[in-house]
């Protein structure tokens, strides 16, 4: 594997987090899982990630608050972020996407393959700043 895409999953549902991790690791990506928003924010403030997948509704710190914190003050201000939600029509998707610079909002139930495909796309086209792995090598 030339470069390992670094992915952070913030999901309080351990059953779902496990299967997401299984699918992404099976493709060779490097996956870190945090089971609540506060832990995820702590990790994101010190570690670089290319893709951050966060659940919307989590105890303590919600997905929205987590991504707001990541965008405001972390090493991941330009990371590709995806918000997953089991909520219904009450989410203002367009406003959230604009405000948090989200790649997309994925409604549960979703296909884990979609996340794998997205991760592959990022790996192929990492954007102007490059992948975390490259940055780490350079630093």
């Amino acid at each position: 594997m030339a470069s390992r895409l670094r992915i952070l999953i913030a999901e309080d549902n351990r059953v779902l987090a496990d299967v997401m991790r299984f699918n992404l690791e099976a493709e060779g990506f490097e996956v870190t899982v945090a089971h609540n928003g506060q832990k995820a924010l702590g990790i994101a403030q010190t570690e670089c990630f290319d893709l951050i997948i966060s659940d919307y509704q989590m105890p303590g710190l919600s997905g929205e608050e987590l991504l707001r914190g990541i965008r405001a003050d972390s090493v991941n201000t330009t990371a590709v972020c995806v918000l997953c939600s089991a909520k219904g029509y009450e989410l203002d998707e367009e406003q959230l996407k604009d405000e948090l610079g989200l790649h997309s909002i994925v409604m549960k139930p979703f296909s884990p393959r979609d996340l794998v495909v997205l991760a592959q796309e990022i790996e192929t086209n990492p954007g102007p700043t490059g992948l975390c792995a490259t940055k780490l090598v350079l630093s």
Partner: peptide, 11 residues
């Protein structure tokens, strides 16, 4: 609460 277990089942 309906979507959460359904998400796991589908995944």
């Amino acid at each position: 609460e309906l979507r959460t277990p359904l998400a796991s089942i589908r995944a």
